[in-house]
Design a binder for these strands. Structure first.
Lengths: 211, 211
DNA sequence: AAAATAGTGTCTGTTAGACATTATTAG
DNA sequence: CTAATAATGTCTAACAGACACTATTTT
């Protein structure tokens, strides 16, 4: 006897545009919350999806035409009051993409959102908090940039996400210690004056399944 | 049209006995995995449970006769292969109790487990990892001890969980910085020689809903 | 007094932040 | 040359680990 529960996945898809975290939102084509903005998400398809992460990945493919280089489970939101149709459970995921990949979606600054469907404002807040926390000790912000980037660009991103200015010298020391960047030999980016060495993230798992 | 998904909660209930992390396991009374050991868990009851955390809390009340002082969401495990009955999703929780509260349960050392039902070995591994990680910067291990404890006892727990010896002086400095303990005035525990000051955790939320 | 554990103080090597200096390009 | 940004070097204050010392109890 199956219990009547609505089982969905949602994805907080983030990128960085104009130096601000932006989240992908879509107008809902049907009730409930018809025409309201919502996170990309949908029902789990038991025949199709190996697990919830695969469902999230499929949703992004279908609804945003992209395959994010980073996707992790954020947490699960559940209860009888979040969806007017009944008791529901949503496995929420966090995905990051580079700004170029993100052509098909509509983007909104994560710190100044319109009214959203369901409890999606809460999910986004949780995602932003997660990104902030993980950024202080991980390569996460690297997934928000184009594949190749300079250390100055990367520092600007970290500084923006953490909300504080960073010292160049100690920032670079930390990057060397954490050791998740690799120099791209012969690749430079010469904006205005002295060209800067380009770097990329070292090869990492496409899906981070850490819990 | 509801999708046929089995929606459950499971709880990795941990305590500390004989200086080892121990997990509560129960023999399954029915198929699937009849008579195998499993985590306390069960179906979500949409009429009864406000959300998944409440369901986990109810399961602990019903199956282990206890109300844990600490409970948080660990993560969600899902897929078509973890339960022979079909595509299933389990919101797994981590709960900590003091050893005295844990009379009704059967305890097993978390690092040497028998064969378990479902993917519960994986859930336990995730819980232990979470406890290890959080312990380095939080009050978490305090929930594994009796309400009142000495700093030496607390240090022994941390040392055990983190798997490394700790310096007394710097350990106490850190406790003071993190500031989650309070002295219990006039309470001492005089094992063999000089009695030690007793401490307790400062009042904190019963449920940690951080994600 | 000796033994045992609790609790505090001091020293020192490491490190993160502040800042200065050098390097390399365009104009 | 100067201007501008990249990249590295140096200095210092704060801190964590190591260890010593003091304090309080039982026997």
């Amino acid at each position: 006897m199956p219990n009547q529960v609505i089982v969905t996945v949602d994805v907080v898809l983030l990128t960085l545009k104009e130096m601000r975290l932006q989240v992908a939102l879509m107008k809902r084509p049907q009730e409930p919350f018809k025409d309201a903005l919502a996170l990309p998400g949908g029902y789990v398809h038991p025949e199709e999806d190996a697990d919830a992460a695969s469902a999230a990945y499929r949703v992004l493919r279908e609804k945003a035409q992209l395959r994010p280089p980073y996707l992790e489970q954020l947490g699960t939101f559940s209860g009888g009051r979040r969806d007017p149709r009944g008791w529901s459970i949503s496995v929420c995921h966090l995905a990051l993409v580079t700004p170029e990949a993100a052509t098909d979606s509509q983007w909104f600054p994560a710190d100044k959102l319109p009214r959203l469907a369901f409890d999606h404002a809460k999910l986004i807040a949780a995602a932003v908090t997660r990104v902030r926390n993980k950024s202080s000790y991980s390569a996460l912000p690297g997934y928000l940039l184009p594949e190749l980037f300079t250390l100055s660009e990367l520092q600007a991103i970290y500084s923006q996400i953490l909300g504080e200015p960073l010292e160049k010298s100690s920032f670079r020391r930390k990057l060397r210690d954490l050791d998740f960047l690799e120099e791209v030999p012969g690749a430079f980016q010469g904006g205005k004056q002295r060209p800067a060495q380009l770097y990329r993230l070292k090869g990492m798992a496409l899906f981070d399944r850490t819990i």
